[in-house]
Amino acid sequence: MTDAVIVAARRSATGKRNGALSGIHPADLASTVLADLVATTGIDPAVIDDVVFGCVSQAFEQTGDIARTAALGAGFPEDVTGVTIDRQCGSSQQALHFAAATVASGQADVVIAGGVESMSRVPMGSTSQGKSPYGQAFKSRYPGDNPNQGIGAEMIAERWGFSRTQLDEFSLRSHALAAEATDRGDFAGQIAPVQTESGTVTVDEGIRRGGTLESLGKLNTVFREDGVITAGNASQISDGSAAMLVMTPAKAKELGLTPLVRVHTAVLAGDDPRIMLTAPIPATAKALKRSGLSINDIGTFEVNEAFAPVPLAWLKETGADIERLNPQGGAIALGHPLGGSGARLMTTMIHRMVNQNIRYGLQTMCEGGGQANATILELV
């Protein structure tokens, strides 16, 4: 087995629901990022063995194996294949795991991993069309209401004792850090410009400046009347795409490319599908055990902010330093384009590791069905 290294990572800006990117077909949005990734590195796309892309709502405009149609739209040769995968919110992080395994095992030399989701054009729930995805055998094992992520977030807040104020404070932190990172130009080197009828989109749309606990406190709860989860302390419905170029070190040397990070450890974990959102905790423990590293060895973390209780519970259980967690903001501010989020978080973390000379970074995110990916990257 050889190493799998990432030599480039690019993403679109994240658009708000019905915002700047909503007029772009999701395949075209993905094509833009793929074409930019190739242009950034200067490689001949003919060397790409496969494109592995995550997409959650594979309905309407996101059907037809969007990885393949996006690759063709990006101008890649017809013999460059593409496959679309769904591990819910972690789909494009899983795409990296598949790409890294394919490269490390010698089945391919060059693979693009990434994802896309246009939640404006293909809303959540489009795939089920009102039909339950849970069969009778599942319902017999887990009786009661069908699992719901929002209810799961409420359950986490209750189990770990988080107040509405604590969740809103964390949300304000996310927006403040994302605004500071944007103002410093932290994201400029990772965002692929997207041309729209209204102009070029290069800035994340969801960041809100000047929020207060008072303003967040006026928002109604969404999932329980007496609950704590609101639109203000949950991730945003978004549009976006991201992609990473993965290869062997030998292929990088042959192509004259400099590896940025290597995929050090990649694991999965499952947990109770009813609470659904707690698996990042055992996934992190599993990744640390397999890697031989401690939580204090990790210089930066990306834990997806699907809902504020998710990273807060993760912090409590892992004992990680909050200053290392999502230091440029998370999905509460930057948005959560489902199938593209894992690659978006990874792209942001890779650039941070390179720019700040951070040796190890760990990313994990909750996923539908009570699952989580966890990935440790090591700076090369």
Rank of each mutant, 00 (worst) to 15 (best):
M1E: 07
M1C: 09
A8W: 02
A9V: 13
R11F: 03
R11K: 08
G15F: 00
R17G: 02
A20P: 01
L21T: 14
P26F: 03
A27L: 08
D28W: 04
A30R: 01
A35T: 09
D36P: 05
L37D: 03
T41P: 02
G42K: 01
D44W: 15
A46Q: 11
C55K: 00
V56Q: 07
Q58E: 05
F60M: 08
Q62N: 02
T81W: 12
I85H: 01
Q93K: 02
A95L: 09
H97A: 12
A99M: 14
A100H: 07
T102A: 12
D109K: 10
V110Y: 08
I112T: 02
A113I: 12
S120E: 00
S120I: 01
T127V: 15
Q136D: 12
F138N: 02
F138E: 00
K139M: 15
R141Y: 00
R141L: 11
P143G: 07
N146E: 09
N146Y: 06
P147C: 10
G150E: 03
E154R: 09
A157Q: 10
R159K: 15
R159V: 06
W160D: 11
G161P: 06
T165N: 05
D168A: 06
E169Q: 14
R173C: 05
H175Y: 07
A178E: 07
A179T: 02
A179F: 04
E197D: 13
S198Y: 02
G199Y: 11
T202I: 12
V203N: 09
V203Y: 15
R209L: 07
N220K: 15
T221S: 09
D226E: 12
S235F: 03
Q236K: 12
G240A: 06
G240T: 09
A242P: 05
K251I: 02
E254W: 04
L255E: 04
L255D: 02
L260G: 03
G270S: 08
P273K: 08
R274V: 14
M276D: 03
L277W: 15
I281S: 04
T284V: 08
K286P: 03
A287M: 01
D297A: 08
T300L: 14
T300M: 10
N304Y: 02
F307Y: 12
A308D: 04
P311N: 01
L312Q: 10
A313K: 07
R324M: 04
N326A: 09
Q328T: 12
G330I: 06
G340F: 11
H351K: 14
R352E: 12
Q356M: 13
Q363E: 14
T364P: 09
G368Y: 11
G368A: 15
G369N: 11
